[in-house]
Design a binder for these strands. Structure first.
Lengths: 136, 136
DNA sequence: CAAAAGTCTAGTAAATCGATAGATTAATAG
DNA sequence: CTATTAATCTATCGATTTACTAGACTTTTG
């Protein structure tokens, strides 16, 4: 299950991607349109800015704007920023790998193989789909 | 990411499935072999019993035993019991459906379609794979 | 300078996670 | 019948995460 943070982040980006121009968008405008707590959305957009997906401009006429084309941003990349690992277990994660403390070896782990299958089937969708698919 | 509860539950069941006979297995035996806190495993096995996957016997010679054949138990069913919804969003869950409060309608939700794709790709693995696949 | 709008710091209520302690109940062996 | 074994139940707990809020601060524009 994705957290609300991730869900809100994705919806906010879709909202921005749907705009024709790339002028700064107000946090409050997105929050209102998408039914998201403004303060919570602040945190989320800031995180997306610090990760290089968004730029921001302060002061009058300011707001957040996209730094890349929607077609260049995969859902997988966004989920990794907002949610963390996509893989069902740390020991099968490509970007957040960690050894399981309770397993002697990876081959010995009874879950490893199937969880890799699960991971790959998810990535097959999430790495293929971009913001452009969501906003189209 | 699956919780440790789910992971431990799956590993415990694999351990039981791998035994030739279907005699009761001690919690402590599983806990020791799989490096799981015994007290935590108690809770997990009890839940699997209450969900109809395991039977138990008290007293000497007691323990937990499987009620079904490993090949009849899908990983999806176990995850639903131990973890909850498999779907990435409540609004695309088959077994735990809930309307999203922030969306007007489902068609209008920008995430709905892709998340259904994700769900189906996961289920494609999880509904196909059984305990027999893990223990084989 | 004043207003607008993002940024930062701090905090918080509630839920969840992973785990532990100890009393109780049921079954079996002798 | 009694002692032992092992599951069951009750309860609690610290740490972390989640979702969210308040308010001060900074930057930009007009």
């Amino acid at each position: 299950m994705l957290s609300k943070k991730t869900k809100y982040g994705l919806k906010a980006l879709v909202y921005m991607a749907r705009k024709e121009d790339r002028k700064p968008v107000l946090i409050s405008e997105i929050a209102e349109s998408e039914n998201i707590s403004k303060k919570f959305l602040e945190i989320i957009l800031l995180q997306l800015k610090n990760s290089g997906f968004l730029g921001s401009k302060k002061g009058k006429g300011g707001g957040y704007y996209m730094l890349k084309e929607p077609g260049e941003i995969t859902i997988a990349a966004l989920i990794r920023i907002l949610e963390g690992p996509i893989a069902p277990l740390p020991c099968v994660s490509l970007h957040f790998y960690e050894k399981c403390s309770d397993c002697k070896t990876e081959e010995d782990c009874s879950l490893n193989k199937v969880m890799i299958e699960v991971r790959d089937s998810m990535l097959n969708v999430l790495e293929k789909r971009t913001l452009a698919d969501l906003s189209g």
